[in-house]
Design a protein around this nucleic acid. Structure first.
Lengths: 208, 208
DNA sequence: AATCTACAGTAACATTTATCACAGAAGGAT
DNA sequence: ATCCTTCTGTGATAAATGTTACTGTAGATT
């Protein structure tokens, strides 16, 4: 059987893989676990091997405004960025599907950046793609109305899971878009009337 | 007289300064110039020596949603990020006060990252601070109402210029917050009644 | 089967924000 | 001074979104 790390991070060099295995610590967390809180100091960089982590911004009222999801083969850009100076986190990270991660002590970050080309490229690409994703989020809330944002949100979800069924309650969607359940219900009903989705309990099927 | 680059970028090593002078090209642009457009390929990293550049997201209706400003001693994070793979820009950059910049060919980015510790640290810090700034923007539009956003916007401006007078028309503010002038006028009037600002033509004085 | 609970639908109303319409004021140009 | 343009103030109204209150329903629990 091939090295699982190599399978998940195919671009990493063999030396880097070996170094990660020597220095990282593999850990698992159950869905619901909060891995990072706003204001907390960050001590590790996290590579996702399995499962799904939600990165969000917490509102005073308990809103969980979705920034993006982390999936296998990805890493937390925030933890990489803050790492250099052990800065405070500005976001929340919550496990949404049981995860296995590789924790890497932050002081190794800088070292590896110099020593491993494939690590350097991975970090830069992680920054870039997350920055872009966040810009897109800004676009949505700045320029789009709730119905468009909802459509975009559903598409993102179905893209992420690779299927056309989104298994979420209206309340969960409302929380992540920072609106109310009633609004989500109303808009989804309209979308159903337009033939865009089919609604079931705890499940929304995208038709187009 | 001390080297101007060293004055503006005090953390750069002397060797790095020399390298920048050898390889960069100093250029000036007038207020109003658009330095970068959404969808354009990026060919240079830009260091700001003088003046001010606005980084914003363009809406279909011509909105110019403010992300942040670039000032002397700073660099465009986007151009650094995209650089590695000559990616397309996702944002717009417009000169708001006549600038002098140092343009650095993107292929030097990676090289310098390895060779100059002070460049590496500068790049990482640039990413980090911009990411944070954008997260704060998200917070504002996701969780705050227009009156709070307006207050925050004015504070940001006065912080940036280091003075308590913000020299902008209501229309300009409205454009950057993606709302309408009337709304801005009304909210400012309320702020004036609460004793938070003093309003003049093309100028808002912050009192608290 | 009876009960309970989380989820979903919907009407009525409140609030916020956007749009339209217009009037007046400040400052520059002639 | 007169004209012009830009900026500002404000009412009236429309539209989007948030809130309250209540109903029904599916599935789980007993």
């Amino acid at each position: 059987m091939q090295n699982p790390l190599k399978t998940i991070f195919p671009n990493f060099s063999n030396e880097l893989i070996a170094t990660i295995e020597d220095n990282g610590s593999q850990q698992s967390f159950e869905a619901g676990t909060i891995l990072m809180r706003t204001g907390q100091y960050i001590k590790n960089t996290v590579l996702i091997l399995k499962g799904k982590i939600k990165i969000y911004r917490e509102g005073e009222d308990g809103g969980e405004f979705l920034m993006y999801y982390l999936q296998p083969g990805q890493a937390c850009a925030i933890s990489m960025i803050c790492t250099a100076k052990s800065e405070k986190s500005q976001i929340m990270a919550k496990v949404v599907e049981d995860v296995t991660v590789m924790m890497i002590p932050l002081q190794l970050m800088d070292k590896w950046m110099m020593e491993h080309r494939s690590w350097y490229e991975f970090v830069i690409e992680t920054y870039r793609s997350r920055f872009e994703e966040v810009l897109e989020v800004v676009d949505n809330i700045a320029f789009r109305s709730m119905d468009e944002r909802l459509e975009f949100y559903l598409k993102r979800h179905s893209d992420a899971c690779g299927c056309s069924e989104v298994k979420l309650s209206h309340q969960e969607i409302a929380t992540e878009l920072n609106t109310s359940r009633e609004v989500v219900s109303r808009l989804l009903k309209k979308m159903e009337q337009r033939g865009l989705v089919k609604l079931n309990r705890n499940q929304i099927e995208l038709l187009k």
